[in-house]
Design a binder for these strands. Structure first.
Lengths: 230, 230
DNA sequence: CCAACCGGCAAGTAATCACTTGCTGAGGCA
DNA sequence: TGCCTCAGCAAGTGATTACTTGCCGGTTGG
């Protein structure tokens, strides 16, 4: 299990895994040392990290660096062109949403420790939580909103005012007539649905409802397509 | 803050609050005693509970007892009749979904400690997690699925086969022709979206996206209506 | 009026916690 | 060879942990 990677890397990896599984407070230095192949109880960990907090911080740093792939993947997906015929476009939309939902779940799996950490160790460290929020959550959120807005614009084939430059703050949902969709908010809905499905499945082993990934992804896609086609 | 309620009740309440805020492992017996108005460090808590684990178990028991209101509320909502005219029906559907989403958020707020506990203390106690899953999550899930199925049936005004008796296991999504919606899975999507919005807002103070409750509820309702109207 | 009980407190217990100190042996370099 | 560096370890440090023991004042019931 613990290979011949440099000791510091093994410590970081095992620490993040244990923090994610047991929580920061419930994970002892000795456990981390043992998991990394060092003698438990010896202070050997402190040859590499000054404190438990610094270990957490360094671990979060490393996890947050392998991150900005989903963004690229989503933006790549959103640049696709849809077929002209309505039925074909609907099928293509469905395929895109299925693919996106699966990409989201895969990314959550890949960053399993990082996502677990948010609820099992970060709550006492506001600055680390802020980093997670800005470098992980907001990116996924924005990329998804951009994808949805792009698909909706392409689907409805009508030029929206102002080139639809959705930047940071479009707080006014009443300003746009009250009939255009609030894709930022809709993105929160879908990202939240996927993230929560993943979270519950991670916590319980399988989702409490018994619904498997295929059914959930299909439901997400179907609902999203319904929303996109007005 | 700590009133004149019986000591056992104060201990339970403060313990659940602290477990939810700090996590089970990071909350000490002394902290709970102090929060309940007892002398911290004295073992006075042990006059009422045999161990820290029993305290957690008893607290979860109590929290799970104040629970089955949302179910009733949802079932009450779902029994309403929709207007006949399509435009009116759409507005009524939207209102129902807004109301339901708000009820869900209110219930999450009301059971704040209980919901926090799932991620910050229960992971080491599988049997307590199982109780939470069966007595809290599945109920909300089933009630929401029943609401959606009822609304869809009413909206499409066509009798589905078999009186639509959706009980525990309708695993087969291919058996229904592939075109009828999987309302159990759709319910997971919406319940997950609401729960995750609440969770992130609870963890960060406000939702990382900056989207407020009104916008989110509106988005949920709009998407749900789109899904319900095919 | 007395005895039994009970809830709270002070002061423990042993274990565990994060972290430190001093040593050791291996590796690099002169 | 001689010396320095350094990762790792054993054995500590004091603080904190969950939990226990013995005592006490108040209430209650006979």
């Amino acid at each position: 299990m613990s290979d011949d990677a440099p000791t510091r890397q093994r410590l970081l990896r095992e620490a993040m895994r244990l923090f994610g599984e047991l929580g920061y407070a419930a994970t002892s230095i000795a456990m981390i040392e043992q998991a990394a192949g060092l003698s438990p109880g010896s202070g050997s960990l402190y040859k590499h990290f000054a404190s438990k907090q610094e270990l957490l911080s360094a671990g979060l740093d490393q996890l947050l660096q392998g991150t900005p792939e989903l963004t690229a993947r989503l933006e790549q997906t959103s640049s696709r062109a849809l077929p002209r015929r309505r039925a074909d476009a609907e099928a293509a939309l469905n395929a895109i949403m299925v693919e996106t939902a699966r990409a989201g779940l895969a990314r959550l799996d890949q960053d399993r420790d990082l996502n677990r950490l948010l609820f099992r160790g970060l709550e006492a460290f506001p600055q680390l939580m802020a980093r997670f929020r800005d470098e992980e959550l907001r990116r996924a959120q924005d990329a998804t909103a951009a994808l949805l807005a792009g698909l909706a614009e392409q689907g409805s084939r009508r030029i929206s005012r102002g080139q639809n430059a959705r930047g940071q703050n479009l707080r006014s949902k009443d300003a746009n007539g009250g009939h255009e969709a609030d894709w930022d908010a809709v993105a929160v809905v879908f990202v939240g649905a996927i993230a929560h499905y993943w979270l519950l499945r991670d916590v319980f082993g399988e989702h409490p409802s018994g619904i498997d990934e295929d059914r959930h992804v299909d439901a997400i896609a179907r609902v999203a397509v319904a929303a996109l086609l007005r």
